[in-house]
Design a binder for these strands. Structure first.
Length: 467
DNA sequence: GGAACTCGCCAC
DNA sequence: AAACGTGGCGAGTTCC
């Protein structure tokens, strides 16, 4: 893959972008070093305790027999050898290289009683060594300066390293708390996160100009993920609750946008639906029972249903998007390259998924990058104490002086609704920003949607009503 | 003793 | 025809 900035504006975006990101690196991110030291000690104790319990297990006894003095309970290759060669358990899942897998899913299929213990140690060591360990290694006098690169990613997205600020735990509640409690705003300030709602969907719409997709993005009374959930689960729109909507969103719609097919979508959704606490209808009926009543009594019949949903998705709902994918790839095959809306040319061997994903991924990030550049200028021009400190693909992270918070938010809104569309004239849907903040001196873990706070009656945010 | 590889797993 | 795109990183292991 060879990419190049073909136009002056594309060159300028990278040039200005890397300078703005370098300024964020210079500001840096504050780390709660005492917390990291305390937490490392606590994790050491918990890991030791879990390891002691594991050493008393049957699996550990077998392991010691095989590896004797070489035994290392942290080694996945050793685990695989003990389980699959020595204990002769039939492997059900394989790695990309074709070896028996010992990842979380594979282990759960083996039915070993030690699985929970192994997974617990994996989670805790990951937090200790990758995340907390990274903060301790990289901070100097309580400030770490993760790099944000614009020269490493084939699609012209960014990457981050030392530490990678773009993969801090967010999904698993325990990992999220343990890690994000360590990350603080600068003294006397708040952390403020501003992320683009549906950034890549907007990016996709700019390329494919699909009227149905655009309608979903323009009309707030519509809801794409709810509608897809209705198709998948054969229900009425009012019965779709958030976890069910999320399952359709993550495992059908986004997966399909990236190029997945119905079988793997069906398998993943089926797995999610086994959680009957979260996967029910608004009426309280369990989703699996509901599907049973609708005649979907087995996995196979659910898969058949998802196949139909895939057909509706691409041949009815988003048929213009589908046509664009086909035309875009055909054009690339003919010319040997394509040029993105933000002005970058990609050459070299790509399959059809890469050829349609790269431009969307790249230009979507460039909407954020341009916003970042303009905000970086504005914080200087206005002499704010508030500073940009990082970026996560479709989200900006700032350390904000509370006295400036209102102006910061208004400025961001102005940039994304007025300035960015003036420069990127190819954007064809409204850019929507969602803002979350912490309280003063609170860690990143405590960030909350300010609108939700308003619902809870926080008078501090009444000015928002007027805005 | 370090480079390169594999695996697992975190993010969008 | 095949079947989810882009990264970074730690640990273990193998190779030179």
């Amino acid at each position: 893959m060879i990419t190049s900035a073909e136009t002056y504006s594309a060159f300028k975006l990278i040039h200005e972008g890397i300078l703005a990101l370098a300024r964020a690196e210079a500001v840096g991110i504050r780390v709660d070093v005492d917390y990291c030291i305390r937490t490392t000690k606590r994790l050491d104790r918990e890991i030791n305790y879990a390891n002691k319990k594991f050493e008393a297990s049957d699996l550990a006894a077998q392991w010691k027999k095989v590896y004797r003095s070489e035994v290392n309970f942290n080694s996945d290759p050793q685990l695989a050898k003990v389980v699959f060669e020595h204990m002769k358990i039939e492997p059900k899942k394989f790695t990309e290289k074709g070896n028996p897998s010992v990842d979380e899913e594979a282990l759960k299929m083996l039915g070993l009683e030690e699985v929970d213990l192994i997974l617990k140690v994996r989670h805790l060591t990951k937090v200790r060594d990758t995340y907390i360990g990274g903060y301790l290694r990289e901070n100097v006098e309580g400030i770490m300066r993760p790099f944000f690169n614009l020269h490493t990613v084939v699609s012209y997205r960014s990457s981050s390293d030392r530490i990678n600020f773009q993969n801090q735990p967010n999904r698993d509640p325990l990992l999220k708390k343990l890690c994000r409690e360590a990350i603080l705003p600068h003294k006397g300030q708040k952390i403020l996160c501003a992320d683009f709602k549906g950034c890549e969907v907007s990016g996709a719409a700019a390329y494919n100009k699909d009227p149905q997709l655009i309608k979903y993005l323009i009309d707030p009374t519509t809801d794409m993920h709810r509608d897809v959930a209705v198709d998948c689960f054969l229900t009425t729109p009012d019965q779709i609750i958030k976890p069910v909507r999320n399952t359709a969103k993550s495992f059908f719609t986004f997966a399909q946008f990236y190029g997945d097919w119905y079988k793997s979508c069906a398998e993943n959704m089926w797995k999610e639906m086994q959680n009957e606490d979260t996967h029910k209808l608004k009426s309280g009926i369990i989703l699996l029972d509901h599907l049973y009543d609708k005649g979907i009594k087995t996995y196979q019949s659910f898969e058949d249903q998802v196949k139909k949903v895939e057909d509706i998705f691409w041949n009815k709902r988003f048929k213009v998007y589908k046509k664009w994918k086909e035309d875009w790839y055909a054009d690339y095959l003919k010319k040997g390259y394509f040029t993105t809306l933000s002005g970058f040319t990609c050459r070299g061997v790509m399959d059809n998924k890469q050829a349609v994903n790269y431009p969307i991924q790249g230009s979507s990030f460039h909407m954020l990058l341009l916003t970042f550049i303009l905000l970086d200028r504005e914080q200087d021009r206005r002499g704010w104490k508030s500073r940009l400190i990082g970026q996560i693909h479709d989200e900006m992270v700032m350390s904000v002086d509370p006295a400036e918070e209102r102006e910061v938010i208004e400025t961001i809104q102005h940039i994304v609704t007025v300035e960015v569309p003036k420069i990127f004239t190819w954007i064809n849907t409204p850019l929507v920003i969602e803002v979350e903040t912490t309280e003063v001196n609170q860690s990143w873990y405590h960030k909350k949607d300010i609108h939700k706070k308003k619902e809870e009656g926080h008078a501090d945010y009444q000015w928002l009503d007027a805005a």
